[in-house]
Design a protein around this nucleic acid. Structure first.
Lengths: 139, 139
DNA sequence: CTGGCTGCAAATCTTTTGCATCCTG
DNA sequence: CAGGATGCAAAAGATTTGCAGCCAG
């Protein structure tokens, strides 16, 4: 938790619990995921606090807000530049650590000031392949 | 509109209006965008009909549902493989027609059956650059 | 004619907000 | 002690759904 001490943010038990849950977490949880997990240890935890804390952490650059799920926001404590592989069947998300430095030239693109990029790979995860469940619509 | 005739879907005036609006549309509109535009000509148009129609068109592969906006779904009538450049300030979205065929090997990734990919480029569009409005939070 | 489509309103789900109380620094 | 954080509930948006009436095929 040391890493959070000099960020100028008030360290409440709730925040520590959320940070502990996120530490090294590779599941790309939604606010609801975080809430249901953390509230086991903190029955008084409120979903609003999760949203508040995640927004605070996002502003401080401690988490990234992912838009990979049309139903809800997901969060990623891995703030290093990386990409994602998403199972279109069960919505599991895996980090992809390839390096990709695009060159965009031509037309409207050249007038943009490009600040970043993110690749979404889609596919079927091992478990869903076994299920032989093609035509993978969401849910 | 010929292109929609043999799809086995009932061609109502509302659907035709939506399809006409989408034809060649590069603005990546949300359901609300479609609704407010189309309802000018069809005052009886309902937002629910827009959602219904878009879901139908999506299932038929006539539009793609984009998850590039955390606030709402957006739709893209361009179903060819392409990518997007998104202004982090005004949320304008531009098509990017580069070809990118990734090779994912190693670890969990190699066990996936990869079916597609999509790159999101982030940046500031020409107009927002002029505004000299960095620190581009949404809205 | 008939089944699918529309439009309205209510319901659902996610996320945000107001506010009184609490607690870290 | 003060100001930010919490937690509850209500509000705000986006999207979905139920259902009676309508209309394209």
């Amino acid at each position: 938790m040391e890493k959070y001490k000099n960020l100028g943010l008030k360290l409440t038990p709730q925040r520590l619990a959320i940070m502990r849950f996120l530490e090294g977490n590779k599941t790309h949880p939604s606010a609801e995921d975080i809430y249901s997990s953390v509230s086991k240890d903190f029955p008084t935890m409120s979903l609003a606090t999760v949203y508040n804390t995640m927004e605070t952490l996002r502003q401080r650059g401690n988490v990234i807000e992912l838009t990979i799920d049309p139903e809800k926001k997901r969060f990623d404590p891995n703030v290093r530049m990386h990409h994602h592989l998403i199972c279109t069947n069960c919505r599991m998300v895996v980090d992809v650590d390839i390096d990709f430095s695009p060159h965009l030239t031509g037309g409207e693109m050249s007038d943009f000031e490009i600040t970043g990029s993110h690749i979404e790979f889609y596919g079927l995860c091992p478990d869903c392949r076994k299920e032989k469940n093609p035509g993978g619509e969401k849910t």
